[in-house]
Amino acid sequence: MNTSLRHHLIASVIGLATAALSPALLAQTTAPVKAVASFSILGDLVRQVGGDRVAVDVLVGPGSDAHVFQPTPSQARLVGQAQIVFSNGLGFEGWMSRLLNTASYKGRHVVASRGVKPIHAEGEHDHKATGGHHHEENDPHAWQSVPNVMAYVGNIAKGLCEADAAGCNTYQKNAVAYNAELKALDTDIRATWAVIPATQRKVITSHDAFGYYAHAYGVKFLAPQGVNTDSEASAKGVAQLVRQIKQEQIKALFVESISDPRLIAQIGRETGVKPAGELFSDSLSDAQGPATTYVAMMRANTTALTQAIQGH
């Protein structure tokens, strides 16, 4: 066989082999979209929608408090290299605009809560214990309502489609599937609370992070701290809260995973109510905990809350 014919045959075989590669296999060779999410809960939502096409880095990891976060130079570099950045918005990440400027970030910035109707710190639930602070402050913890997170998912899918048009069909399918899971979660949470009389749905938590949960599921939350853990609980506010716990015989007292437990322990001593455990408000748990994903977090919190109220 002459050299020319041999080269022609080799080229033909390579061409046939390349043509035989499935689109799925070719997609796997594409470098994933580089995404950065501001905190662990949002990072999980981006992963649910992005799937294998998106590599997600989280700035404020499990167990850490985004309210008091201080970005490091290495995190600024990470943001500078990202194709898309996701933040919660509603004032949750007061440091985000400075970080984007420091990183000279020119890519897409998606505010996941876009379109969600905010509630104020003084809103649908009781905030007497805050000592009257934060009257006009938006509550940023919108993810505590599952229907709100379904809106987050739509914003995430739209942002990823704009950053990676080739993967848009995948992102849209993932979003539809995940929203179906979220709808089932919302139904389950409502059914769990339905057996508890409205007058008994009263809970004490470390800081005012559950306003959207309260509004969505008909639960009354009281907290010694406001919506931002960087604020101090006033002595007057704590004293009012202690009196209210005694008067209303509230039995569900929780510390949050990101909070200093000493204040809740003090309230427990003064009221005789033993803390019922830990809730996850602003952060997922580590890999060994019960709240490794958003769905797991909402289920774990709902179980803990309802069992404490029912005295289990």
Rank of each mutant, 00 (worst) to 15 (best):
T30R: 14
V36R: 00
T30S: 11
L21M: 13
L25I: 11
A35S: 05
G63T: 08
S40F: 04
L45V: 10
L59R: 06
R53Q: 10
L9T: 11
S12E: 15
A24Q: 12
L9I: 15
T18Q: 09
A37H: 00
V36D: 07
V60D: 03
V36K: 02
V49Y: 01
L26F: 06
G51H: 04
A17C: 12
I41C: 07
V46G: 01
D57F: 02
A11F: 08
G15W: 09
S12M: 15
S40E: 06
G50Q: 01
S38M: 06
A11P: 00
H7Y: 14
A24K: 09
A31R: 10
A24S: 12
V33S: 02
V56I: 05
L9G: 02
D57M: 02
K34M: 06
G63I: 07
D57V: 03
I14D: 09
R6D: 10
I41F: 06
R6T: 14
L16E: 09
V13R: 08
A17I: 12
V13P: 00
H8G: 11
V33K: 05
A19I: 13
T30H: 11
H8N: 13
A27W: 04
L25K: 10
S22P: 01
L45C: 07
A37L: 04
P23N: 09
S40N: 05
T30K: 13
V36N: 05
R6E: 14
L45F: 11
G63K: 02
A31F: 04
T30W: 05
G50V: 05
A19S: 08
